[in-house]
Nucleic acid binder design. Sequence first.
RNA 1: GCGCCUGUAGCUCAGAUGGACAGAGCAUCGGAUUUCUAAUCCGAUGGUCGGGGGUUCGAAUCCCUCCAGGCGCGCCA
Length: 612
Amino acid sequence: MRLTSYALTRARDEIFGLLEAQGPLLPYTAIADVEDRTDADHEPERPNSRARLAIRDVEDRADADLTVPVFAAAKAHGGNAVALAEKIAGSLDLAGTRFASVSAVKGYLNFKLDQTKFCSEVIHDFSRDPKRYGSCIRGEGQTIVIDYSSPNIAKPFSVGHLRSTIIGQALHNILSYLGYRVVGDNHLGDWGTQFGKLLCAFARWGSEDELKRNPTAHLLGLYVRFHEEAKVDASLELAARDWFRRLETGDEQTRSLWQRFVKSSTTEFGRIYDLLGVKFDSMRGESAYEDRLAGVIDRALASGAARREKPGAAMGTGGDEVGPNETVVIIPLDDKGIDTPLILQKSDGTSLYATREIATAEYRIERWHPEKMLYVVGKEQELYFRQFSAALAKLGIPVPCIHVTFGLVRLPEGRMSTREGRVVFLEDVISEAIRRAEAVVQDRDLSSEEKARISRIVGIGAIKYADLSQNRIKEVVFDWDRMLALDGDSAPYLQYAYTRTRSILRKSEVQSPKSKVPSPSSFALPEEIALLKSIARFPDAVVAAAEAYEPHRIAGRIYRLARDFSSFYDKAPVLKAETPELRDARLYLVEMTGRVLATGLALLGIEVTDRM
RNA sequence: GCGCCUGUAGCUCAGAUGGACAGAGCAUCGGAUUUCUAAUCCGAUGGUCGGGGGUUCGAAUCCCUCCAGGCGCGCCA
C-alpha cells in the first residue's frame, strides 16, 4: 500500500533499519523470538517484528526524541538491559542518518534527532501540500457508511442527540481525510410504536392550531401527556399499538397526519443541522424501508435463521390480548452466545426497530457496497447491536457493522426523559453558547455582523469541542459552564491561537508579500523546536483517531499544538525578529501552525475565524 | 440475579498496543502587557491512579476479587 509518510514515521523506520543492520543480537529479533513462538503465522517477518519493536515518541524529555526500551530483548538473551543498551549505543553508526546522537540510559536507547534535518523534513512534509497536511491514502478504494445523528423525530432535538451527531460528523470528516469514500446516512426515526402514541394522543387531545403554530412543543406536550395518562389508563398503550398498526397497514387519514408530524420535525431539525454545520449524504426515514420488511422476514424464515413461535410473555399490560393463534418471528441467538433472541415481528404482525434496521443494512449494501458500516449510537444499545450483528451474520450478510458507542448525557438530577419532560433542548444550549461568546466579543472593534458571525463560530465550537475532546465512552453529566467554557482546554482557546497566527500573517503581508520556505537552521529556541515537533505529531493523531473511531485523539493533539504555539508566541517575536531570515522562518512556522490548527478543528467540525 | 461500561489532583478530564519521575484545564495563590489581540503566558500548591491480591525486569494500563456509580437483560427505539 502506498502511504503518505511523515517525518516521525520515517524516523522510526530509520531506527528500525539501524537496529536491524546490527545483526541478530538485537531487540526486534529478540522480541520476535520470544513472542512469535505462539504465533502460527509465517507472514513477512519484518513488519511483524517491527510492530513489536517499541520505538516511542518521547515528549518533554531533553535527552531523547525517540526511544527504544531494550528490556524484552535483554531478557530473551538472558542479559541485562542496561548493558545491552550500552552495547548497541556504542556500536551504532549514525553518520548520514537523521539522528544527531544515541545514548543508553537505564535500558533505553535514546535517539536525538538532528534538529536541522528534522525541521527541514517537517517543513518539506508540510509544503508538499499545506492544505492536506496529515492526510493520506490509506482508505483509498474503500467505502464506509456511517449512521449518525438518526434522531427520533417524534421528540425534540435535545442535547442527548448531540453526541451521535457531532461524533458521527467528525468521523465522517476524519475518514474522508484518510481517503475513504464515506457515506453519512441520517436514519431518521419516523416509524414505530412511538408514532402510534403520538397519533393516539393527537386524536384525543391535539389541536390543529397548535400543530401549525408550534409543532415541536405541541408534539412534545402530547407525548408527555400520553405517558402521564397511560400510568393510570393502561388501555392507552394498546390504543397506541393499534394506531401504529393502522399506520403500518396504510390507513390513509392516519398516514397524512403522520406525514405532517414528520414534516414539521424535519424542518426544525434541518435548522439545527444548518446551525451546527452538520451534513449528510443521505437522509432517509425508517419508513422508507417499509416495503422491504416483509421480504426481510420471509427470507429470514426461509433460510432457517428465524422461526415463528408462541409469544413468550404477554404484551401490553393486560395479559390476555394475545390471541391463541398469534405468533412472533424471532431469530434465536443462543448459538452466538446471546440469550435474548432478536424479534422481527410482533404478535400483531407489525415490525420492530430491528426489522427495519436489517432492511436498512441491506439497502445500504446494495446501494453503496461498503467495506464496513459504522453506527454511532449510545452505549445503552450495546446488547441490541450485538444481537443485530449476530443476526446479520446468521442471515449471511457479510459486511461488518461496528457499533461506535458513546456514554449517555445525563442531568445532575438523573437521566433525561422526554416522556417526563425532563430534557435540555439543544437549541437553548446553542443560544446560550452564542450569548456567552457575544459577551466576550462585545468590546472588540468589529462590525456587528462580524461579531455575530464570530459569536456563532465560537459558541458552537465550544459545544462541539466540549464533547469531542473527551473519550466518547464516558457518560456526560450535562453542565452549562463546562459545556460552554471559553477558556482553558476549549475550542475558543484553539480558535484564538489560530486568529493570532492570522493576525501575524496579515500584518506581515504589508511588509513582505508572502512567507517563503525558510532555512531550517534558523531555528534555535526551544519553543520553535517544540512547535515543530508538535506539528510533526499531528498526522499520527489523525490516523489514531480514525483507527479507534476516537476524534478526541485529534483534539488532544491540536490542543497541545495551540499551547506550544502560545508559548512560542510569548517568547519569540515574529515580525520583529532579530534578522530577516529568522523573521521568514518564524513566519513559516506561524503559517504551518495556523494551517494545522484549522485542519484539526475542521476535522472535528469546528470552524475558525481570522479575528476574535 | 446475570452481562457490559466507568472509577486518575477539590471539580472536569488526558494518559491506544504494559516502559523511565502520572499530565492538562478549572478553582486557589503569586508573577508577566512601551513588543505580532491578555479568550494569553510563566510559576506555586494539589495525586494511597476506588480497595486488596496476582503476573512481569517494569502495571493507571494485563488477570482475579471486592466496593461505588451508570447502562442493559424477547414483542420500545
